[in-house]
């Protein structure tokens, strides 16, 4: 028996909006600790990892580990039927071939019930090592989204150059070039507006904007985004250090005492040099 009740159903809507254009089919792994999903995009170039802790749910019951394989486009269509302030309840029986979704209106006068067929997915699961990254940039998520969108007008790739005092995002193409430089901010009254850089050494790497624009669809989930990267390492070293991680924390929207209940992490390798 699996049952998870999320008072802020809009969080689930935002998560699906952040992944459905990147990944078509994926499995939710449900355990007593929470729900998680890991999948590569269809071209196997980027990887998305979602985690929701059990204590982020108002009610959470998972008697035994379950894998719920499903088409995310279908799930997204059904989740869109929930109002933003609805409570969403996910239910699954042991060994069933479907899950039930209940949408409870805030005044509890209306309950909608939908079922989704499950799929048996034979997906490749990648082991992500626990890596220390040399450069970490924390910045407003809407600023990152805007930069990626604007630079897509100029070129297909963004070059991120990071030094202690700031970070520069640049792109070049047939029509010309463009760049945006963000300085590290002093301690701010509004932490959501701050730009924070933590680095061991300077870095300059290029990434495909097509994927970063997909990742930026998670912007409504979090006011800040974290980019973690490491400079190119010499040949023979493990390649994994080159991967960029774009992370959005998932918080409940408790205005007085917000807490992190999970995350979305996207992984992308730098573009291959021309």
């Amino acid at each position: 028996m699996f049952e998870a009740r999320l008072i802020q159903g809009s969080i689930l809507k935002k998560i699906l909006d952040a992944i459905k254009d990147l990944v078509t089919d994926a499995s939710w792994d449900c355990s007593p600790n929470g729900m998680s999903l890991q999948a590569m995009d269809t071209s196997h170039v980027s990887l998305v990892s979602v985690s929701l802790n059990s204590d982020g749910f108002d009610k959470y019951r998972c008697d035994r580990n379950l894998t719920l394989g499903m088409n995310l486009i279908s799930l997204s269509k059904i989740i869109k039927c929930a109002a933003n302030d609805d409570t969403i309840i996910i239910k699954a029986g042991d060994g069933g071939d479907k899950i039930t979704l209940l949408f409870e209106a805030q005044n509890e006068s209306e309950v909608a019930e939908y079922e989704i067929k499950l799929m048996n997915l034979d997906s490749e699961y990648l082991g992500i090592p626990d890596t220390t990254y040399n450069v970490t940039i924390k910045m407003p998520s809407n600023k990152f989204q805007r930069i990626c969108r604007d630079l897509s007008q100029i070129g297909d790739a963004v070059t991120i150059s990071c030094a202690k005092d700031g970070v520069r995002f640049g792109a070049a193409g047939d029509l010309g070039s463009g760049s945006i430089r963000l300085a590290q901010t002093a301690t701010s009254d509004k932490p959501e507006d701050s730009v924070t850089i933590s680095m061991q050494e300077a870095l300059c790497q290029s990434f495909a904007l097509k994927y970063l624009n997909h990742f930026a669809k998670a912007t409504p989930l979090s006011a800040q985004v974290t980019l973690s990267m490491s400079p190119d390492v010499p040949l023979g070293e493990p390649l994994l250090f080159n991967v960029c991680v774009v992370e959005y924390n998932i918080s409940d929207n408790d205005d007085e005492n917000p807490s992190t209940i999970g995350f979305i992490r996207y992984y992308l390798a730098p573009k291959i040099d021309d």
């Binding site: 170039v45 980027s46 990648l126 082991g127 790739a157 080159n242 390798a269 730098p270 291959i272």
Partner: peptide, 14 residues
């Protein structure tokens, strides 16, 4: 179109 490394070359398959 930007040419990209495949992530399966980076992470171990389990």
């Amino acid at each position: 179109e930007v040419e990209q490394h495949f992530l399966s070359n980076y992470f171990s398959t389990s």
